[in-house]
Design a protein around this nucleic acid. Structure first.
Length: 350
DNA sequence: AAGCCGTGGAA
DNA sequence: TTTCCAAGGCT
């Protein structure tokens, strides 16, 4: 890359940011002093593989209930997991708590450089760089999916992802400024989210279109090149709604595996073959009440939901008041199943 | 190191 | 309807 581009590109991008930065709850004004590292860290973890729109109310809820990292560290696991319900990738919530407790045990301040941050649970290369740059003003090369796309287009990097990551990071390094690296990173992500979009990028609005090899080639959508995806298999399972005296049986899923650490309806393993009633938590007279279709990252699931009754002491788990099922913090799959059960109960009463 | 791990919005 | 994909990390 020409040396003049290495100077011109960051300057143009920071000018654009000063005019056009998105206003977000966890973000300082362009050029302003860095925001609270706790809020930066919390927002970055919530935003991992997750859209700004989805994070909004969770960020407000968490910062209200747990205003400092020490407050979060002192919280009950069950409350934090329930507060995260619906946001997905639940290992993030478990690591969030582990990280808060590690920081609090070490004195209550986040490490102020990439290496220190990178050693904490749930903080990988991206998040360490982002927090170091945004919260502590460090120069760090911040590369997320937005930046990958913007940089791949700027430099017309033809090698396919994910193999091209080192080349993209090296290219990003050449345009990252020594000052305002945090604003630069956020600007790159804003440009990726609003201008240099996956489809139909609005190059006319881009502050660096003159420097963009993808734009000059006339077909910026050609980049980034990506490896082909694999097909998503279908699995089947059964969830059991067991009710006694207005209470439903809930279990907690093991920390490892799908929906780890979350409250759930009893449900056996999910596989290609229909398990039927093989994994029932109690002996019961089961009645089918419907099917839930749900799509995960690497498989789709058809979940049969069945309803039955039992004795209170016949099974291990938590008997949860049915009318308060909305507060149980069920992940979306089981929230759908619960909605089906509620509907079925209501129809029975009519 | 390639697979595992959620969810919902956009097109 | 289907497909794509998002401020990734862990093992």
């Amino acid at each position: 890359m020409p040396v003049d581009s290495a100077v011109a590109i960051p300057a143009l991008i920071l000018e654009w940011y000063d005019r056009s930065a998105r206003r977000l709850p966890w973000r300082a004004m362009p050029g302003a002093p860095p925001p609270d590292p706790y809020r930066v860290w919390l927002s970055e973890v919530m935003l991992q593989q997750t859209t700004v729109a989805a994070v909004g109310r969770y960020f407000a809820d968490f910062t209200t209930r747990w205003p400092t990292v020490a407050d979060l560290a002192a919280a009950d696991d069950a409350e934090v997991m329930a507060a995260w319900a619906g946001l997905g990738y639940y290992a993030r919530a478990r690591n969030l708590l582990a990280c808060a407790r590690a920081v609090t045990a070490a004195g209550g301040r986040f490490p102020d450089d990439e290496a220190g941050l990178r050693a904490l649970p749930g903080i990988g290369d991206y998040t360490a760089a982002a927090v170091a740059a945004i919260a502590f003003g460090r120069r760090a090369v911040v590369v997320d999916a937005n930046v990958e796309r913007v940089v791949a287009r700027l430099f017309a990097i033809d090698a396919p992802l994910p193999g091209s990551r080192p080349a993209i990071r090296a290219a990003c390094d050449t345009i990252t400024p020594d000052n305002r690296a945090g604003d630069f990173a956020q600007a790159m992500m804003d440009i990726g989210a609003t201008i240099c979009t996956p489809r139909k990028p609005v190059c006319a609005l881009c502050p660096v279109n003159r420097h963009c090899a993808g734009f000059r080639a006339g077909d910026p959508e050609r980049w980034p090149v990506k490896a082909a995806k694999k097909a998503r298999p279908l699995r089947r399972g059964t969830a059991f709604w067991v009710e006694v005296d207005g209470h439903v049986l809930l279990v907690r899923r093991p920390d490892k595996g799908m929906l780890g650490g979350m409250r759930a309806l009893p449900s056996g393993p999910w596989s290609e073959a229909d398990p039927g009633l093989a994994d029932a938590p109690v002996a019961g007279n089961w009645q089918p009440i419907g099917q839930v279709a749900h799509v995960f990252t690497h498989f789709a699931l058809d979940l049969a939901v069945v309803m039955g009754t039992s004795e209170r002491d016949a099974a291990d788990g938590e008997w949860w008041p049915v009318e308060r099922i909305g507060e149980a913090g069920l992940p979306t799959l089981f929230a759908k199943a619960a909605a089906l059960a509620q509907k079925s109960r209501k129809e029975e009463r009519e």
